[in-house]
Amino acid sequence: MRRESGAAPAALEEPAPVPAPAPLRTVTTASGLVADGVSAWFSGRLVIESVSLEMEASKVTALIGPSGCGKSTFLRILNRMHEVTPGAELAGRVLLDGEDIYGPEMRPTETRRRIAMVFQKPNPFPAMTVEDNVLSGLKFSGKRPRGKEKDDLVEEMLTRAGLFSEVKARLKTLGGELSGGQQQRLCIARALAVRPSVLLMDEPCSALDPSSTRRIEETMREIAEEVTVVVVTHNMQQAQRVSDYCALFLAGENAPGRIVEKGSTKDIFENPKDERTSDYVHGRFG
């Protein structure tokens, strides 16, 4: 709450709200996220160990690696969704603009508003209309924009998610009636509507067809200007297409997941230092 009231006015003071064809105004301030020595346990079993990673502001960071190496768990730690799972524990720090999100003063609900998340499977709220879905995050924090303010916000968010032109006639239909790819973009719009500083995406395209995947990848590139994006993906081409930085997670047999190599996407794919990285990105295992 405190944080948001700090960020939102800054966004509103932004000069001249500008012609429609250029909707990509900077309305949020992207923040850098730093994971420092993060470990995680499920029911006492160590699943990731001492992962440190810097996710630079306004950049897209891709987390790659085979299944079961802790990428998704790591991602969920970044916005305090990890602790929702029963039996989940963690160690280490996650710094958002230098502030530990696990600090005693931090509320998980507020942290999650600042660090939004898009899930693997599209999960719009089926009982809400497209419009209400976009506004749901605000509703949860007790805000109810009305009239033109609401319409503008819905249009802006749907536009940023690359969905507005497809659904502008259907804003009052239920969110579950859209196609899979549209649903996922609706979830992105919903996540952006709370004006987060960071957007986490957990394999956002794995349940989608190629053309929807392409649309979402474009969206990712576009929103990266104002939101730091962290994306988990299995798809090497996707990582190469969308990300600025990459981190490769690997887990040995019965060993927790770790980062094997991190760096700029170009380096990881063209000039990997670790042999395992080279094997993985060239599809020799995993």
Binding site: V84, P126, G137, V194
Partner: peptide, 15 residues
Amino acid sequence: VHESLREASMALGAP
């Protein structure tokens, strides 16, 4: 009600 909807709501910062 699918667990993912609860998660989506929580991830949006809902109490």
